[in-house]
């Protein structure tokens, strides 16, 4: 646990952070993914630019859409009344990251930039239609969460770019939830499922479903969603959605010796039902 030598500087603005990052630098926010990787020498940046105290990256605002600073902590998001009202699935997911100490330091921007497939927030962001706002030396751009997560630990984020904020459409007329089966060792998701439903009377008018943990990235599941829309979320619809879900995630499915693909795939269907139940209650 002895990292290679590196320089450290603290940035006081997004612009100064972007100017400082260099060719082999890394932005440091909470450090809860980066520092362990550095200690194991899996990551060997020559400098860290600390963005955790840049005011423009902090805070959560809500006027119609929800906007969360890239350096907002999981604990802040989990405790935020605005997030809880507009997108409870994200608040739930952020509240399941690590333990309290990790949530107090770890940031949403850092989390999604790292793109651990078993992390909780990406799944909620994909289901809830989040947009990732990115700034680089050449200006700013935005990308949907579904397109932001590309593959295992791989995102659309380019070298030298910084996640400034994450925005979510107001979902206060939806019913959404995130549930997971935690790995007993790490408490990362063996499978995590987020759903976002709009009900019209007893009928599901719109549905969004995403799965993580069981997959190499957070995956949006259109087939499962389609099976729910138009139904009353009855047992037959839930069974059809669970069956469709295994097709949705099939190309992205992953597993290991302890929790193989077959188990994770089966649990994705189980936890889809549990997510719908949680969202509906």
């Amino acid at each position: 646990m002895w990292p290679q030598q590196f320089d450290y500087q603290r940035a006081d603005s997004v612009e100064s952070a972007l100017a400082a990052i260099g060719d082999n630098g890394k932005f440091l926010a909470g450090g809860h993914s980066l520092l362990p990787a550095m200690k194991l020498r899996l990551s060997t940046p020559d400098q860290l630019v600390d963005i955790s105290r840049i005011d423009a990256l902090r805070g959560i605002s809500s006027n119609g859409n929800l906007s969360i600073g890239g350096a907002a902590t999981h604990a802040e998001i989990a405790a935020s009344a605005a997030v809880g009202a507009a997108c409870p699935a994200l608040a739930q997911a952020c509240g399941m990251v690590g333990d309290q100490a990790v949530r107090n330091f770890g940031t949403l921007g850092g989390n999604i930039a790292h793109a651990d497939p078993a992390s909780d927030p990406p799944t909620a962001l994909v289901a809830c239609g989040a947009t990732i706002h990115i700034q680089g030396a050449d200006g700013s751009r935005s990308v949907g969460a579904q397109d932001f997560f590309v593959d295992l630990f791989e995102t659309d984020l380019q070298d030298g770019e910084l996640i400034t904020s994450i925005s979510l459409p107001d979902c206060s007329d939806c019913q959404c939830a995130y549930v997971k089966l935690p790995h007993p060792a790490s408490r990362y998701a063996i499978v995590g499922v987020a759903v976002c439903l709009k009900m019209n009377g007893g009928t599901c008018a719109q549905a969004d479903v995403a799965v993580g943990g069981a997959t190499v990235k957070a995956v949006k599941c259109a087939g499962a969603a389609a099976a729910l829309v138009g139904s009353s979320l009855d047992d037959a619809a839930l069974a059809a959605a669970a069956a469709a879900l295994s097709d949705d995630i099939g190309d992205w499915l992953t597993g290991d010796v302890a929790y193989p693909e077959a188990y994770r795939s089966a649990m994705a269907g189980v936890f889809l039902k549990r997510a719908i139940s949680a969202a509906s209650s």
Binding site: P184, A185, V257
Partner: peptide, 29 residues
């Protein structure tokens, strides 16, 4: 009984080399 166990792959690599994979018991169990 419930969660701890070393796993080696066929090449003798320790797959449970950190507490991310090797399950130490936790109070809430």
């Amino acid at each position: 009984a419930l969660c701890e166990g070393v796993i080696y792959d066929d090449n003798g690599q320790l797959l449970t080399g950190t507490m991310l994979d090797y399950c130490m018991p936790k109070a809430d169990m």
